[in-house]
């Protein structure tokens, strides 16, 4: 069985959904003949035709707005942001129209807004961002952030089938680095369910996206020091899988959160609050954070390397918490 990349998994997921359901169509910049800036939509124009694979002007707000309009009419649009950084241009349509529509007048907006996020590829300030928290704060949206090829495919399929607007954050660092053998049979991954990537005893790290691999690398090293780190991959950021998070916290009593997004207002803060409210009496130490610093994502290699959380940061935090 051949190995499938994270990127190819996403492509397969969209492809399968377009085969399965003729309401699904894609729109975005350069998604047609060019196949998308990262080739996620390659071959789709030929297979599904120009009515279902639509190249748009450089108008992120109109891309999302048009997706919303088509969704009102019963279609299932998948809108690509060429880089997820550009989602800021569509912020208003996403947060004011899509997110509030069902609540205001009962009109659901089953759209997917997807695009490559994250750093590690020397993209600089406008091609490396992690915009999840702009949307995490908006009731009515869902956000998924897969770390594995299996999840990337299963989650994009679930997102397309979901009745609410879903933002899919695909980590571009993983696009071609991550490969695995996918099941031959059709499957989906449910939105709102985290996964335990490594079972451990005594300490938990909660993370997602590319940082899952940083956490796993650190966990391998920590075994030599007698620290058995449990790695929880959140997979869906909104709605958070509170049950699994709290279960792991209650079991291990020591916990920290790791994310590539910047520190202040990052999801770690919210997770700390939830743990504090729901599992305070199970804590045997403070909930710590390992995150990027509060700066834009810098371009130059040494600066970017400094910016991104790495294995050594995780090791230091795990040791501090272990000795607490």
């Amino acid at each position: 069985m051949s190995q499938t990349t994270y990127l190819e998994a996403i492509r397969q997921g969209i492809w399968e959904e377009m085969e399965r359901d003729d309401r699904v169509f894609i729109l975005g910049e350069d998604v047609g003949a060019y196949g998308g800036a990262f080739k996620v939509t390659q071959g789709m124009l030929d297979r599904f035709g120009a009515l279902r694979v639509i190249d748009t002007p450089i108008s992120e707000s109109a891309i999302v707005g048009a997706a919303i309009g088509a969704a009102y009419m019963g279609l299932r649009p998948v809108a690509e942001m060429q880089f997820i950084d550009f989602i800021s241009c569509a912020f208003d349509q996403i947060t004011n129209v899509a997110a509030k529509s069902r609540y205001r007048w009962g009109a659901g907006v089953p759209i997917v807004v997807r695009g490559p996020s994250g750093g590690g590829v020397h993209g600089g300030p406008f091609h490396s961002q992690n915009p999840e928290m702009y949307f995490f704060h908006t009731p009515g949206l869902k956000i998924v952030a897969p770390a594995t090829a299996y999840d990337a495919k299963g989650l994009i399929k679930s997102a397309i089938r979901d009745e609410d607007p879903v933002i899919c954050l695909e980590h571009k660092f993983l696009y071609r680095r991550i490969k695995e053998t996918l099941p031959a049979d059709e499957y989906t991954v449910p939105i709102g369910k985290a996964a335990i990537r490594r079972r451990g005893n005594g300490m938990t790290v909660l993370t997602y996206g590319a940082m899952v691999y940083v956490a796993l690398d650190a966990a391998a090293q920590l075994t030599h020091e007698g620290i058995d780190l449990e790695v929880v991959d959140l997979r869906t950021l909104l709605p958070l899988d509170r049950d699994l998070v709290l279960e792991s916290v209650r079991k291990n009593s020591k916990v920290f959160v790791l994310h590539e997004d910047t520190r202040t207002g990052g999801i770690a803060g919210e997770i700390c609050a939830i743990i504090n409210e729901e599992a305070f009496e199970y804590l045997d130490g403070p909930v710590l954070r390992v995150t990027a610093p509060d700066t834009p994502v810098p371009f130059s290699p040494p600066l970017e390397e400094y910016f991104l959380p790495k294995v050594s940061d995780v090791l230091a935090t795990a040791r501090r918490l272990a000795s607490y």
Binding site: F280, E281, Y282, L283, D284, Y324
Partner: peptide, 29 residues
Amino acid sequence: SPLVRRLAREHNIDLSQVTGTGSEGRITR
């Protein structure tokens, strides 16, 4: 820690009897 205090309460333990091995003599789980 919050956990330790709860366990002490549930098991009727006088924490002054327990020796702490954590940082600065903290009683750990």
